[in-house]
Design a protein around this nucleic acid. Sequence first.
DNA 1: CCGGATTTTGAGACGCACTCTCAACTACGC
DNA 2: GCGTAGTTGAGAGTGCGTCTCAAAATCCGG
Lengths: 168, 168
Amino acid sequence: MRPRVAPSPDLSSSLSACIARRGLKSTRQRQAILGAFLASSGHVTVVDLLARARAADPGVSPATVYRTLRLLAECGLAKPQRFHGSPTMYEIVAGREHHDHLVCTRCGRVVEFEDARIERLQTAVARARGFTVTSHRMELYGLCRLCRPARPGRKAGSAGRRSRAKRR
Amino acid sequence: MRPRVAPSPDLSSSLSACIARRGLKSTRQRQAILGAFLASSGHVTVVDLLARARAADPGVSPATVYRTLRLLAECGLAKPQRFHGSPTMYEIVAGREHHDHLVCTRCGRVVEFEDARIERLQTAVARARGFTVTSHRMELYGLCRLCRPARPGRKAGSAGRRSRAKRR
DNA sequence: CCGGATTTTGAGACGCACTCTCAACTACGC
DNA sequence: GCGTAGTTGAGAGTGCGTCTCAAAATCCGG
């Protein structure tokens, strides 16, 4: 529907804009956290992000990461995702379309997908039940290509088994 | 696919069976909690269930409700559902088919649905991405018939606005 | 019906993820 | 530079759930 906007290089200005609009201030910590967030693969936990932000600025506290992430969410730059059995992950939102997730239950890999047919069916099903849908969540859990136990003595590609939720 | 089995009146025997099989014991508290659970509408929180169980047996502690719910889940009688923004709800599983949920963001009502077309598409989409799906979760959030703000001066049916997550 | 091994229970400590409180600090307009 | 208002870090607090442990209940053989 909407034209796909490429993940632009100046998302930080979106934050600046949002910060300015709300009379907030730009700080060292917020810069570090935003930088770390945007440099991530798209799905980070608070713990991940704290480590990354501290690489840029050692004086960043967990509380500030939580606060900044909430701020990013309010500015429409980040979106919290609570996947089954792992702490909340935040994904980069700006300029990206709605999508759902495939989650590998073994290595923790997250793959995004979007399927208009499913969305249409969801709306139709809801309407048939008298509901007006405002949002939804859909997560498919299973094994990704590399983790699938095809051969007993698996040697799943070059990457091997990745430690879950730690990939970058 | 499978013939739909009506919520049978002897689910408690399933628990007894599971308890016996595992060398566990049948206690007053477990009876009370199971009874309260089966008498529920199908989606209860721990708090709800504790209150209901205490009606039958005042000496039931929260810890035991948690433990028994876990036991029920292991026996395949209950299934935890974590909906957005509310504590974990447990639903009755035995003899019921897989389904997904419609959740009213206003009154907390939960409606179940099942749609084979969506399921098929999910599998197909996953396969196209190299995933073998083992489970999924899909929740559609929105307003139910009674909560939909059709007319500004809503008088949404006979029930009016229900307190969330308290309906039975 | 009893005794005793074993499970279960309740109460509270604990764990985790996250938010709040508050004094010290910092950004930013003037 | 100055002052004010927003921000920070540390730690306390909260919500939800699990764990610990001593006391209690179950249930088995006899």
